[in-house]
């Protein structure tokens, strides 16, 4: 009698989404609360501090600007990949997904370089609360990006076998992965002005 779990590949007729898409939206709402709590921490520490530095005096704004552009570009390639897959073009999808991964890694490399510069000057999270919250928020963001790269790598190589068996479900998975990727991108669009420009 083992009945199948419904709406894995096809969307629910009433809610209009698949299980994985709804699950991803739930997960992202929880992520918003996680980063929201950290941004609230930033606001509270800054408001309660007699002297709070300006981000642009201490952090490398040009580098972060380049990184912002890289991440936005990666979001574009991600959605292009999904569109190609929806048009049943696996090869083009793989190219775009590979580009997304490369851009993600480029971001991580630049971020690593930025961290390295700080460590070289003996600047660690313990220096003051500005650097504390800077390393915490960007570190957590980096962790999210690493997870995104790993997931995309999975879908680029072993995960893509599903395309043969169940293209609809695979497309759904890529959409969910894309939602996550865009979210991580979006977080950076808040991190950048908050930490670097204020």
């Amino acid at each position: 009698m083992s009945a199948e779990i419904r709406f894995i590949a096809k969307p629910h007729p009433v809610t209009g989404v698949t299980n994985s898409k709804l699950g991803m939206w739930c997960f992202l709402s929880s992520e918003i609360m996680l980063f929201g709590a950290l941004f609230s921490t930033f606001i509270l520490l800054r408001a309660g501090s007699p002297a709070w530095p300006h981000g642009y005096d201490l952090l490398n704004v040009p580098l972060a600007t380049v990184n912002t552009l890289i991440l936005i570009a990666s979001s574009i390639t991600m959605v292009m990949g999904w569109a190609e897959l929806a048009g049943k073009n696996l090869k083009a999808f793989k190219k775009y997904l590979a580009a997304t991964i490369v851009l993600g890694c480029a971001f991580l490399a630049l971020k690593g370089f930025e961290y390295g510069m700080k460590f070289e000057h003996h600047i660690y999270p313990s220096k003051n609360n500005f650097y504390g919250i800077y390393f915490t928020i960007t570190g957590l963001h980096v962790l999210h990006l690493v997870c995104g790269v790993v997931v995309n790598l999975y879908f680029l190589f072993p995960g893509s076998k599903m395309w043969e068996k169940d293209p609809e479900q695979f497309l759904g998975r890529i959409e969910a992965a894309g939602l996550y990727w865009h979210f991580v991108d979006l977080v950076w669009l808040f991190v950048f002005p908050t930490l670097y420009l204020l």
Partner: peptide, 25 residues
């Protein structure tokens, strides 16, 4: 659970930073 636990996770991360990396949150 979905929406209230993440702030505690954030607080836990901050306290771990305080304890392990000597920040002063």
């Amino acid at each position: 659970l979905l929406l209230a636990f993440p702030p505690l996770e954030a607080a836990g991360i901050l306290q771990l930073m305080d304890r392990l990396l000597d920040t002063s949150f």
